[in-house]
Design a protein around this nucleic acid. Structure first.
Length: 378
DNA sequence: AATTGTCCCAACCGCGCGGTC
DNA sequence: TGACCGCGCGGTTGGGACAAT
């Protein structure tokens, strides 16, 4: 099958868009909606192919786009979602409604990927590069399970993303004040001043919790059943057997649902808050943190933090929006300092590397949990 | 000040999927 | 059933901006 491509059509312009072209496209779409992209250029008086128009609109002109630097929370979300979904930028973008897939993809390729790389974490697998450790461990199997279940989640998210797109298209003539997100179009209620809601599809956290919870409590996820199915997986669970991904038996996974009870008797969320406060307190002692960190850094040359281990932290602290504790780096620090007694013991060499993958995944989980309760992203 | 190197992002390109005829 | 079409996605690239020499 030979398709006619944009560049094959004579007389069509390529390259950067001029303000005049932008104005034409913007005016046309605001007035009529985009309709058929193929037919749009002629109707709008543009010497462009429809594809180019669509790209310009979706990546630049669309009013519900947030431009500019990504904040720390967005960075975290991207990393979490990438760990879960891989290079499915459109699916990731549905969770960052004001960002385009192209923008996220660019940001990942130019910033986040390099940053993870510098930390010694494979940006593709989100696992430490030297993956010899951990192989054969229980958690390695857990990672495989996660991967399997992430496929389910990914497929579900794709379907949901499609629904979101369709719902957008179902608005034939986008209002001129289309300054809200695409999501707000979904739930639009003219008389309502309700804040923009997240799409209904954003129960990824629950799915994720279910995935992880079933992984640890059921012990087998070989079933082909979707982890995001309507089966109750966590809400009804009490007294979660907190088989932590950390070696520390007193450490608990902090992503359980609110009615779940930790083995310490506090709820998971309480524990999480307390835990983070504890981390925060520790972080108030920068010298101590640095000492501990440095000692950790010196453990092993192939550690994920070897080399430019400050990269993440420098960037985070440089971000004016970054709260002191609200960061991936901080959680990594907390995990590495607080949750791993081995760090202060004599068996650091044996245990540190083995825990890194755990730390990373647990950090993701903690972040997802934190973002559920406190962020607008989840 | 000029040149070279690097980074970043908007835009392009090709592929695959789903719908229609 | 298969050809065709429109669209969206993900990978790649061109060129401008900025930094280093």
């Amino acid at each position: 099958m030979v398709k006619s491509q944009c560049f094959e059509k004579v007389g069509l312009k390529k390259g950067p868009w001029t303000p005049e072209e932008d104005q034409k496209l913007l005016a046309y779409v605001e007035e009529h909606g985009h309709g058929s992209w193929q037919a749009l250029p002629a109707k709008a008086g543009l010497q462009r192919c429809g594809k180019s128009c669509r790209l310009r609109w979706t990546n630049y002109l669309r009013p519900d786009i947030k431009r500019g630097k990504f904040n720390l929370q967005e960075e975290q979300s991207i990393i979490q979602l990438h760990a879960l979904l891989g290079n499915r930028w459109s699916a990731i973008a549905t969770h960052l409604p004001k960002r385009t897939d192209n923008e996220i993809k660019n940001y990942w390729n130019t910033h986040l990927k390099k940053r993870l790389d510098k930390m010694g974490i494979d940006p593709v697998t989100h696992k430490p590069k030297a993956d010899s450790f951990g192989s054969g461990s229980g958690h390695s199997k857990g990672s495989a399970n996660l991967s399997h279940m992430a496929q389910w989640e990914s497929a579900r998210l794709e379907a949901e993303a499609r629904l979101v797109r369709e719902s957008k298209l179902s608005v034939p003539n986008p209002p001129k004040n289309l300054l809200g997100s695409a999501v707000s179009a979904q739930v639009s209620d003219k008389g309502s001043a309700a804040p923009t809601e997240r799409p209904r599809c954003l129960d990824v956290l629950k799915a994720w919790q279910g995935v992880v919870f079933s992984m640890f409590s059921v012990g087998s996820s070989d079933s082909l059943e979707s982890p995001t199915s309507t089966l109750n997986f966590s809400e009804n669970a009490l007294a979660i057997p907190l088989i932590g991904v950390q070696k520390n038996p007193t450490t608990t996974l902090a992503f359980a649902t609110n009615n779940a009870t930790c083995n310490s008797g506090t709820t998971a969320s309480e524990f999480d808050r307390g835990n983070q406060l504890e981390c925060f307190e520790k972080l108030k002692e920068p010298a101590q943190v640095k000492r501990n960190l440095d000692s950790s850094m010196a453990i092993h040359d192939t550690s994920p933090f070897a080399g430019d281990h400050n990269a993440w932290f420098v960037d985070s602290s440089a971000n004016e929006n970054a709260p002191i504790i609200d960061g991936f780096s901080e959680i990594l620090v907390c995990n590495s300092l607080d949750h791993n007694p081995t760090f202060s013991g004599e068996n650091i060499n044996d245990n540190y590397a083995g825990n890194l993958e755990d730390i990373y995944w647990n950090s993701l989980l903690n972040l997802v949990d934190a973002s559920q309760t406190g962020s607008s992203v989840f």
